[in-house]
Design a binder for these strands. Sequence first.
DNA 1: GCCTGTGAATCCATTCACAGCT
DNA 2: AGCTGTGAATGGATTCACAGGC
Lengths: 211, 211
Amino acid sequence: MSRDTKIPGATIERIALYLRPLERMEEKGTLVVSSEKLAKICKVNPAQVRKDLCYFGEFGVRGVGYDVRELLGEIKKILLSDRQWKLGIVGMGNLGMALLHHQNFQKRNFRFVAAFDSDPEKIGEILPTGLIIQPVSRIRELAEELGIEMAILATPATESQGVASLLFEAGVRAILNFSPIQVRKPECCLVVNADFTVNLDNLAYHLSKSE
Amino acid sequence: MSRDTKIPGATIERIALYLRPLERMEEKGTLVVSSEKLAKICKVNPAQVRKDLCYFGEFGVRGVGYDVRELLGEIKKILLSDRQWKLGIVGMGNLGMALLHHQNFQKRNFRFVAAFDSDPEKIGEILPTGLIIQPVSRIRELAEELGIEMAILATPATESQGVASLLFEAGVRAILNFSPIQVRKPECCLVVNADFTVNLDNLAYHLSKSE
DNA sequence: GCCTGTGAATCCATTCACAGCT
DNA sequence: AGCTGTGAATGGATTCACAGGC
C-alpha cells in the first residue's frame, strides 16, 4: 500500500492494542501469528487486522502469517514505543499518586520525570520513586529543563484549564486529561480525555437498554 | 424524530459529555443554553449537539435554545443517572484504591458496595469508606447479596479474565476494565476498556507525526 | 432575527471477497 | 491449501443547509 495514504485514527488506536498480545507471544516464544488469531485475541475482525497493518507496509507472508518478533518491532517503530517518553504529572491526589506508581507506564516506556501539585501541604514531599512534589508555579521552568514531552492531568475540574495552559506554554504538546472537562488547546497540541465516569454512564445506558 | 430510530453509540457517549457542563450551568444559575454554546464547551459541532439531542425528543425552543434545568433532567433520565448504581471493584492495588476513593464516582451517583482482592495480606483490611476488602472467592456470593450491577476491574493482566468470568457468573453484567487485556464475555454482558497506556501510545504517535 | 429539528450530502470506517504469493 | 494484501461494497457518523417556529 502506498505510503501517502491517510491513516485512519481508529487504525492507530488498534495498532496500540495489537502491541500488547504480541509482547506476550514473544515472551512465550510464539514465532508466527495469523491475522485471525490476533484478531480473536483483540476482539476485532481479521480483515481489520490485515488492513490496519498494511497501511504501514507488508509485514506478513502469504500462506503463513506474521512473524511475531518482526511485527512487534514494526509496531513499536510505528508507535515510537521503542524509545522512552518523558512524562510530567499534575495533581497528586489519590488518582495522581496511583498513576505515578502504576507499573504499566514503566512497562510501556513512559517515565515520570516530574510531579506537581498546588497544595502547599504536599509540595516538597518525597515520593517512593524519589521524585519530589513541585509547586505548579514551577511547571514552566521544569518542563523545559527536564524535557517533559507529555503530561498527565489529574487535577480537580476547576484547576484543569489553568494547568493545561501552563503546560502548553511550557512547550508540552500532549496531555492525557483525567478531569471531567474539555480543555482548550493550541492547534499544535493534543489532548486525549480519560474521564472514566463517562464510561460508566455509557455502561449504565446500554445496560438498561438490554433490560 | 421517531422513537424507533437506531441511536448511534457515538451519540450516547457525547450525551454523557453534555451532562457535565450542564450541571455546572445549573449551579451557576444559567437558564438557557444554545447548541452553539454547549458545542463550544464540549468541543463538538453545534449541528452534532442538536442531532444528538433530537434522537431522544424535542427539548429545545426554536429561536431561543434549551432550558438548562429541563435538558439536564432529560439527559439524566436518558442515562439513568438519576438513580444510584451499585459498583464492585476488584484489585485493590494503587489504582484500585485510588478509584475507590475518587470523588467523581460519588458525584455521579455510582456507589461502591464491595471491594475485592486475592492477596491474603489485604483481605480484611478496613478502608476509609468503611468497606472491608473481601477475598475474590466471595465474589459470587456477595455480588448477588449486595446487588452489584457493574464492576471495576483493576487487577493485573494475568488475573483479569478469571475475575471477569467470576463476575459474569455472579450476574454482574457490565465491567469497566482497566487492565491491558481484552476479556471474553457472554453476549448479554458489556465491557468497556479503559487502559490509559493505549491513550499515551496514541499521543506518542500523533505527536511525532506533527514533528 | 434567531436558533432548533432534520433530510440530504459528505466523510470516515468496517467488512467482504478474491487475486496473488508461498 | 493457506493466509496475506487490497479494491470494492457496505455501513455509520458527521456536517451541511435550510425549512419551521418563536
